[in-house]
């Protein structure tokens, strides 16, 4: 009879060798350090981010000298004062915040039935179609999609041409607040559906059948069973959508016609148009602060949703 070892595939023996090698390099007494070693890349990444934030914090305390175009040597709170007192920044911040909240509400409203249908449909063809329709936009960047809307919604675009056929004169569909919100909703929808789908999958079909047998029609089944149980998914999706919308740059820039700036656009202007890195840094920090507070409030009110992961549901 041949040796049993010969019966194993070569890859197994290669693995054995690698394991022996690993054991020599990293003796088992170090085993407990392994998880920490694997955390290292993440720690380095976050560390760099923190380092960057510190630098931004430093820059935010300096003002631009327009006679030399250098940042001042000494620290001042002048930038913060400007941001907090000038109307312009309040307007832009208010627009971004309100926009991100509206976008989140509408996106969740649209994403929910989509995700529900995708998860619950007995037809695998329909489910595949919905998945493809969901992922397709991911392969088209948001800038390209925004330009697509320019073509579709422009004065000579498809929509206006269709309206023209029924005698409606061309109207301005672009370059206003609703257009920006529309673009953002369209951009966020796949994110929300992808966050919601696992949460809905986790609700057993049987619960809905049970609710029906206990006397609840579909409206009340939805209201009292499906909705409360999908809360983790809604919170997770809402958080992703609200933060992505709040910090978005391209959609307001392209669909806003220059008059619908969000905070990110104002930051861009400071860094790249007026070369005022101090003010830009200040605005960046304010955005981080507003975003964090928003997320914190949601955590406090609704819990962390699917983002809580390991935590048991209370």
């Amino acid at each position: 009879m041949r040796t049993p070892r010969a019966a194993y595939p070569v890859t197994w023996r290669v693995m054995d060798m690698l394991e022996r090698l690993a054991a020599a390099v990293w003796p088992s007494s170090f085993q407990r350090g392994l998880p920490y070693l694997m955390l290292l890349p993440a720690i380095v990444l976050v560390g760099l981010l923190v380092l960057g934030l510190v630098q931004i914090g430093d820059t935010s305390l300096r003002v631009l000298d327009t006679s030399t175009f250098l940042m001042s040597e000494d620290y001042t709170l002048a930038n913060y004062q400007r941001v907090l007192t000038e109307n312009f920044f309040a307007t832009v911040a208010g627009r971004s915040l309100m926009g991100s909240l509206i976008v989140t509400a509408i996106t969740l409203l649209f994403a929910f039935p989509y995700a529900y249908l995708m998860v619950r449909t007995p037809s695998s063809a329909l489910r595949k179609f919905l998945l493809v329709a969901l992922f397709l936009p991911f392969f088209i960047g948001q800038v390209v999609r925004a330009y697509g809307w320019l073509i579709i919604l422009g004065n000579q675009g498809m929509v206006n041409e269709a309206l023209g056929l029924v005698g409606v004169p061309p109207m301005r569909l672009l370059y206003n607040y609703p257009a920006v919100l529309f673009g953002l909703v369209q951009y966020m929808l796949p994110f929300a559906v992808l966050m919601l789908a696992p949460a809905l999958t986790a609700i057993p079909n049987e619960l809905e059948a049970a609710a029906a047998s206990l006397g609840a029609g579909w409206v009340r089944t939805f209201r009292y069973v499906v909705l409360p149980l999908s809360r983790p998914g809604l919170v997770g999706a809402g958080l992703v959508v609200v933060t992505l919308s709040l910090t978005d740059f391209a959609i307001p820039a392209i669909l806003g016609g220059g008059t619908q700036d969000f905070i990110a656009n104002a930051i861009y202007d400071q860094f790249f148009r007026t070369s005022d890195q101090g003010l830009g840094a200040t605005l960046s920090l304010m955005l981080v602060a507003v975003g964090s507070i928003l997320v914190g409030v949601v955590f406090m009110l609704f819990g962390a949703g699917t983002l809580a992961m390991g935590e048991t549901r209370k």
Binding site: L64, T66, T91, V92, R95, D261, A266, T274, S275
Partner: peptide, 18 residues
């Protein structure tokens, strides 16, 4: 222009974004 551009720019933005 160079010395005042940022201010003009900010003022213009303030009016237009209002």
């Amino acid at each position: 222009q160079v010395e005042n551009e940022s201010q003009w720019f900010a003022k213009f933005k303030e009016i237009m974004q209002g």
